[in-house]
Design a protein around this nucleic acid. Structure first.
Length: 311
DNA sequence: AAGACGAAAGTGGTTGA
DNA sequence: TCAACAACTTTCGTCTT
């Protein structure tokens, strides 16, 4: 089972499958997984903690002082002041009649000004869209924040002009996933939004080009984590799949091959080797590749690995 | 009957002229 | 812009368990 970037999940919850309380939160895959049997309690969870961390009491005091953490997911970064509805001053005294009307007018204009110009309206709409998609995919908070920052950059550089806000928001989410190493495909994103896969891809390429982002290709290893979890396979299977992948890399069998196909094939071999057999179809469905691709990778691997496998 | 295998033709993306 | 190309998909018949 993966350990780096994973943390013991501090909870009294137990695995419904085996009853173990050894649950880990895998931030990379955004999942809560049982260490004992590999059961996925929450596939694609939402991170509910604050996005800042404190390392000592002093830091905590400093940060808590400011109230809610500043967030990029609300168009004014959540820092807006509102004039409340109770017609009382700071001392709790009621306003005199004349002042009441004045306060009412102030409140009205304040509300109007908050979402005033076109850019602000655009942001307000887009950021709610981002939240919607992230919620649909149950993505952790940091992805939401990252996507929001990316969208703000896009707006700032006037990149949204001429394309749909929803298209750009979907692309921003995808960029955020890639940047944070969370394996989510264009397909996943397009299913969680009203945008087609093609359009998300187009906006994505446009964004990384204009914003000069460098996105590392998704590693097959990230997909192994995802697939093994979704197939609820033992940690051991995942571990063996990783080892097979490592050998495959050394033998230069991975270059030019799709990472999903590679991950699917290694997961398949690992499942066969451990006796926890999954069918090619099952894996193909999760990995969104065809059985034929799994077979092709599998064939190449077995041909070259038969003398190197020492599992 | 389900799963695995593989051939053949088709598709979409990348690369280089 | 276009052709060549490799990877991948779809389809379908056959073999194996």
């Amino acid at each position: 089972m993966k350990t780096e970037n994973s943390s013991q999940f501090p909870t009294t919850r137990r695995c419904p499958e085996c009853g173990s309380n050894r649950l880990i939160k895998d931030n990379e895959c955004a999942e809560i997984v049982c260490m004992a049997c590999g059961y996925v309690l929450v596939a694609k969870m939402a991170d509910q903690g604050p996005e800042w961390r404190d390392f000592d009491a002093e830091q905590r005091a400093k940060r808590e002082r400011a109230g809610a953490p500043a967030t990029f997911t609300i168009h004014d970064k959540g820092l807006s002041t509102t004039i409340d509805r109770h017609d009382r001053d700071v001392h709790g005294k009621r306003f005199p009649q004349g002042q009441k009307a004045q306060i009412y007018r102030l409140r009205k204009w304040h509300r109007r000004i908050r979402v005033s110009n076109a850019t602000e309206r655009n942001l307000a709409f887009a950021l709610s869209e981002i939240s919607k998609i992230a919620n649909n995919l149950n993505l952790p908070r940091n992805i939401l924040e990252t996507a929001s920052v990316i969208y703000r950059k896009a707006v700032k550089q006037r990149l949204v002009r001429g394309r749909t806000i929803q298209g750009v928001t979907a692309a921003a989410i995808y960029v955020a996933c890639r940047q944070c190493g969370v394996a989510r495909s264009l397909e996943d994103i397009s299913q969680a939004s009203p945008i087609s896969k093609k359009e998300v891809g187009r906006s994505y390429r446009f964004l990384i080009k204009k914003l000069h982002f460098y996105i590392r290709p998704v590693k097959a290893g990230q997909y192994i984590n995802k697939f093994c979890n979704q197939l609820t396979m033992q940690g051991e299977v995942e571990d063996i799949a990783h080892r097979i992948l490592l050998v495959a890399k050394e033998l230069k069998l991975t270059s030019g091959r799709g990472p999903t196909g590679m991950a699917a094939a290694t997961s398949y071999i690992a499942s066969v080797l451990t006796g926890e057999r999954k069918t090619q179809r099952e894996i193909a469905e999760i990995a969104q590749v065809t059985e034929v691709t799994i077979r092709n990778r599998y064939k190449e691997l077995v041909e070259r690995l038969q003398f190197t496998i020492y599992l």
